[in-house]
Simulated assay, not measured.
Amino acid sequence: MVRGYSRSNTPIQAIPLFSQLLAFRFLPDDYIFPSVLKACSSAKALEEVFDKMLDPCVISYNAIFTGYAKCSRPNEALSLFRELQVKSLKPTDVAMLIIKESTALIDMYAKCGNLEEAICVFKNMSIRDTAAWSAMIVAYATHGKGYKAIETFEEMRKEGVQPDEITFLGLLYACSHNGLLDEGWRFFHSMSDKHRIILGIKHY
């Protein structure tokens, strides 16, 4: 439906449909995002719709933030993130969204080559879940900071946060690109032996 609207004469209709998808806690994939972004581009709707909202809800913030993240527009995303922090939304909703969007910022800054900003966002997070820790580990790994990736993993374990398959994907990438073969094998074997994580093709 989203794709159909994005190709129609009324592409703006894809935006509320996308918001409904998020409201039902469905995770959009790489098939949906291009259609949403196409709809926003062709109708110039994303910012216009958001700016016309008198009282944007958490779902609305999430939709536009996701758009900024996918378009690699960190300055706009960070500005929106700061605006969200001063809004009088439900604390639980804000906490969940801030964690999610902080993680997206870490990933976005790392992909844009700005590791310092990614580190800054991570350090300023009051709550860090598995996704946030994993994003920081992957950020260090992709920037050739293998030892920092491992150090971050050790801090994660001290905090009592459980790693997942993405965490180890970052660790294995860090080890393989920094010549840390022994450490890489240790992490590889600990996935199934210690953490009961099912190995995927990317881990090999």
Rank of each mutant, 00 (worst) to 15 (best):
Gly160Val: 11
Ala23Ile: 07
His177Trp: 04
Met191Pro: 02
Gly160Tyr: 09
Ile166Asp: 05
His203Asp: 02
Leu54Lys: 13
Gln85Leu: 13
Ser72Glu: 15
Tyr147Asp: 15
Ile106Thr: 01
Met156Phe: 06
Lys123Cys: 10
Phe81Val: 04
Thr167His: 02
Ala23Ser: 11
Ala135Gly: 04
Val161Thr: 08
Ala135Tyr: 00
Val94Ala: 14
Ala14Pro: 02
Gly179Cys: 06
Cys112Trp: 04
Tyr204Cys: 11
Cys57Glu: 15
Lys123Val: 08
Asn62Lys: 09
Ala131Trp: 02
Ala95Lys: 14
Pro11Phe: 04
Arg82Cys: 12
Thr130Lys: 08
Gly146Leu: 02
Asp55Arg: 15
Ile197Cys: 07
Ser8Ala: 05
Val138Thr: 05
Gly144His: 09
Ala139Trp: 02
Ala43Lys: 04
Met125Ile: 08
Trp133Ser: 03
Gly67Asn: 01
Arg128Lys: 15
Lys111Thr: 04
Asp182Trp: 06
Glu101Ser: 04
Arg128Val: 02
Pro91Thr: 08
Lys145Gln: 15
Arg25Asn: 11
Gln85Ala: 12
Lys100Arg: 13
Leu97Gly: 01
Ala110Asp: 00
Glu116Gly: 06
Glu116Arg: 10
Ser42Gln: 10
Asp107Glu: 09
Lys38Tyr: 09
Val58Pro: 02
Leu97Ser: 01
Asn114Lys: 06
Tyr173Met: 11
Asn75Trp: 10
Phe26Leu: 11
Met136Gly: 03
Asn9Cys: 09
Leu22Gly: 06
Ala95Gly: 08
Ile106Val: 08
Thr167Glu: 01
Ala77Gly: 05
Lys111Val: 03
Ser192Thr: 12
Cys112Lys: 07
Lys90His: 13
Phe81Trp: 07
Lys87Glu: 14
Ser42Pro: 07
Met191Glu: 01
Val138Ile: 13
Asp55Ala: 14
Lys111Phe: 03
Asn62Met: 07
Gly200Lys: 15
Cys71Thr: 13
Thr92Glu: 14
Glu154Pro: 08
His195Arg: 05
Lys202Met: 08
Glu101Phe: 06
Ala141His: 00
Arg186Ile: 08
His177Ser: 07
His189Val: 10
Pro56Val: 03
Asp55Ile: 12
Glu83Pro: 06
Asp29Arg: 08
Pro34Thr: 09
Glu151Ile: 13
Pro28Ala: 09
Glu159Arg: 14
Ser176Thr: 12
Ser88Cys: 13
Gln85Arg: 14
Gly146Phe: 00
Pro91Ile: 10
Ser60Met: 14
Lys111Gln: 07
Gly170Val: 01
Ala69Asp: 05
Met191Asn: 02
Ser72Val: 12
